[in-house]
Deep mutational scan, measured.
Amino acid sequence: VRQEELAAARAALHDLMTGKRVATVQKDGRRVEFTATSVSDLKKYIAELEVQTGM
């Protein structure tokens, strides 16, 4: 499950970095929206997932 969450989070980051205004991911069973202003929060979430998956 964590691998899927990590892939979704990375895709969301890619979307935001390429101009999409809002990206949505499932985080702990709930839907979370990230915007360009919350990229740093999304990067932290990705880092947490990488630690949890041993990457």
Score class of each variant (00 low, 15 high):
R10S: 04
L49T: 02
T37L: 08
G19D: 03
G29C: 06
G54P: 05
A9V: 04
A47N: 12
A11Q: 14
G29D: 05
K20C: 09
T24A: 07
M55W: 07
A12W: 02
V39K: 04
E4N: 09
G54W: 08
A11W: 07
G19M: 02
Y45A: 02
T24E: 08
L6A: 02
A9I: 04
T53P: 07
R21C: 14
D28E: 10
V1E: 13
S40C: 13
G19T: 04
Q26A: 06
T18D: 12
T53I: 11
G54I: 12
E5G: 04
D28H: 04
D41T: 09
V22W: 07
A9K: 01
A23V: 15
A11P: 00
Y45N: 01
A7N: 13
R10I: 12
E33L: 07
D15T: 06
E4K: 14
H14M: 11
V22G: 05
H14A: 09
A11H: 10
G29Q: 04
V51P: 04
T35G: 05
K27Q: 04
A8G: 09
R31T: 10
R10E: 05
A8W: 06
A11D: 10
L6V: 05
A9Y: 10
T53D: 11
A47M: 10
L49G: 01
E50I: 11
G29I: 00
R2G: 13
A47K: 12
R31M: 14
A23K: 03
R31I: 15
V51K: 06
E4A: 15
L6M: 04
S40L: 14
T53L: 09
T35F: 08
E50W: 07
A47R: 12
D15V: 05
Q52H: 07
A12S: 03
A23M: 03
M55D: 12
V25D: 01
A7S: 12
G54H: 12
R21S: 15
E4C: 12
Y45G: 00
K44A: 15
L13K: 01
V51W: 14
E50T: 04
H14S: 10
L13E: 01
A7Y: 09
D15M: 10
S38H: 11
A47I: 07
L16H: 00
S40A: 14
S38C: 10
G54N: 07
T53V: 15
R10P: 01
R31S: 13
E4R: 08
T24M: 05
D28S: 04
Y45V: 05
V32C: 06
F34R: 00
K20L: 07
R10C: 13
A47G: 09
L13W: 05
D41P: 02
R21K: 15
F34V: 03
Y45L: 06
L13S: 00
M17P: 00
A12G: 04
V32F: 06
A23T: 07
R30W: 03
T53H: 07
A23H: 03
D41S: 09
